[in-house]
Amino acid sequence: MSATPLSIREVKVRHLRCHEEITWNCSEGLNLIIGANGSGKTTLLEAVYLMAHGRSFRQARDPFLVKRDAERFFIHGQWHRYGPMNLSVAGRRGQTTLRLQGRDVQRRKDVSESFPVLVDAPQGRKIIDGAPGERRRWLDGLVITCFQNMAIHYERYLRAVMQRSRLLRRRASSEELDVWEHQIVQYGKPIVLAREKMVAEMNLYLVEEVALTEHPLTISVTMPDYDQQAWLSRLKEKRSDDLRTGLRFGPHCDLVNIHFQKREIRSAGSRGQQKLAAIAIKMAECGLWTRYRKLIPVLLLDDCLEALDRTRQLRLLKRLQNSSAQVLMTAPEGVNIASDLNIRIQLLDAHGLCDSATSSMVSMLDDDTTEVMEEAA
């Protein structure tokens, strides 16, 4: 069965952050919004994400989604997945309501799985340079997405870890602890194996992105040898230590590494290289969604040309142009766009959005300049 591309055709926003009312019409391929800082470019990407997830992609739980002096915000989107679909969000501080085809959505997870939207944004999840827990949660979310039966293993593994901790504090009997320690190993082992498989498949997709990243990018997980008997023995022997420090051995503590030029990308990569690596990882995620869920996600890229020189900007735009996913991206005024690229460019200012092939806000490179940049690449 071939994969179905997901796309959004129109977004209507009212009273969301700085926007009073605005309509955004999108093409199926590569869409670029250009505007000044503070004009609300990121907010339009945020509106798309809100429809799919019921929350913002920004790190903090931001209570200021509603425009100042307004009581509620509203978002309505016309999507296409097999056929036309309508998604809408209404919200106020701390509360959002999703509606699909005019009916309230009870489980947001059902929408996010049916309308996959991936995002790379400066204010989003820090996969490249974030804390170890960020990377681990990202990888585990991908495992659960691709191997749907794994969600129950994660749930039961974490429950067993918490129950063991409670029993340790209560000075429970060894027999009681044995029961939960066997469950930790029983449900933890499939998590370890699923992660290994996920990382191996992700790395295969990343090999295809070397033209973008320039150097090989690989993902690995630092973890001990989870031999079943040795794992059980370790849990039993370290009960006193774990009572003081908590359980620091198991899949919930493993480190996810991203290697660039055989070093951790946090230290080895420049800002531009880290930016390209983050986008390459999102492209690999698209490949995994396509393979396992038979859906091609919408890809949101906020300020993705930042920290890139002209050559790398061109290389990235050409890669995105050839993607099977619909790409919605933003860039600041004055960005350089090669004239032969097939991109829908829209300019955002105080009056709203307008289509433009040329403007003082965007510099269109001529063919000679493009050829020089291609040779440099």
Rank of each mutant, 00 (worst) to 15 (best):
L365D: 01
L6Q: 09
L305P: 06
I219D: 05
R99L: 12
R169T: 05
A160P: 09
A151P: 00
D340L: 09
V161I: 15
F147M: 13
M51P: 07
V298M: 09
Q101I: 13
A52T: 14
A194C: 10
T245S: 12
D309F: 02
R244E: 13
A331N: 12
A325K: 06
S270Y: 03
S267Q: 10
N37K: 07
D254S: 05
W24K: 11
T370M: 09
G352Q: 11
L276A: 01
E181R: 04
K126I: 01
N31P: 11
I281F: 00
R107A: 02
Q346F: 06
Y49C: 02
V117D: 01
V13S: 04
P63I: 08
T358F: 14
V362F: 03
N342Q: 06
T4C: 07
S356E: 14
D104A: 05
R135H: 02
K318Y: 00
L317F: 03
A131F: 13
M51E: 05
E264Q: 01
Q313V: 13
I296T: 14
L320D: 00
G269Y: 00
F74M: 03
E28K: 09
H215F: 12
E371H: 10
E155F: 12
L247P: 04
G334W: 10
D355G: 08
L328P: 01
I184C: 06
E237W: 05
R293L: 15
A211M: 10
P216G: 06
G133S: 08
H182Q: 14
Q261M: 13
A350D: 14
R125Q: 12
D366Y: 04
A376E: 14
G83D: 14
T222A: 08
R263N: 10
Q346G: 03
N322V: 01
R156C: 11
L177V: 02
Y154T: 11
S323G: 05
R319C: 05
I8C: 08
S363D: 12
R164P: 00
E371C: 07
E201R: 12
R156G: 08
A121T: 15
A200N: 11
Q346M: 15
P63T: 09
L217E: 04
P297C: 08
G133V: 15
N342E: 14
E155D: 08
L314A: 09
F260R: 01
L308Y: 06
N203S: 08
D254P: 02
P332S: 13
L168M: 12
A70I: 11
V192H: 00
D367Y: 05
I152Q: 13
